[in-house]
């Protein structure tokens, strides 16, 4: 947890962007990124950090945009038993939960 994603998120918010933060809160099996890994996303499409090896970032960014609109946090489930995760391709075969929240 060395990359300072929160600093980036704060800087983006300061420049007037709408920002959401995604955090890995639980993993099972061979997940590429440990719990605590973060991804910051803006409504304008900027991204910093990661919650996987790139497998689910697209789906998480979609959910983040939804959370930016509604203001409600979401707890996302990804795993091989999950059809949606299969679509976005969690190639590692791991499972993880990602918490998505709006900043501000």
């Amino acid at each position: 947890m060395t990359e300072d994603i929160l600093a980036t998120a704060a800087a983006w918010a300061d420049s007037g962007e709408t920002v959401a933060i995604a955090t890995v809160v639980e993993t099972w099996g061979s997940s590429p990124r440990p719990a605590g890994s973060m991804l910051a996303v803006t409504a304008s499409g900027r991204m910093e950090g990661s919650v996987s090896g790139g497998c689910i970032e697209g789906a998480v960014a979609d959910a983040a945009r939804e959370t930016m609109t509604t203001g409600s946090p979401q707890l996302l489930d990804f795993g091989i038993s999950d059809e949606r995760a299969w679509e976005v391709g969690l190639a590692c075969g791991g499972k993880l939960k990602v918490f998505v929240e709006k900043l501000g």
Binding site: L6, A10, T23, V25, P73, L75, F99, K102, L103
Partner: peptide, 29 residues
């Protein structure tokens, strides 16, 4: 995450002080 929480978190780290963020997953409190 409230901006005020983020600012307090970053200020603590800058000051060399460890802090812990606790999130209730049902509602983000």
């Amino acid at each position: 995450m409230r901006r005020e929480t983020l600012d307090r978190l970053q200020a603590a780290r800058q000051a060399g002080r460890g802090v812990v963020l606790l999130t209730r997953l049902s509602d983000g409190a």
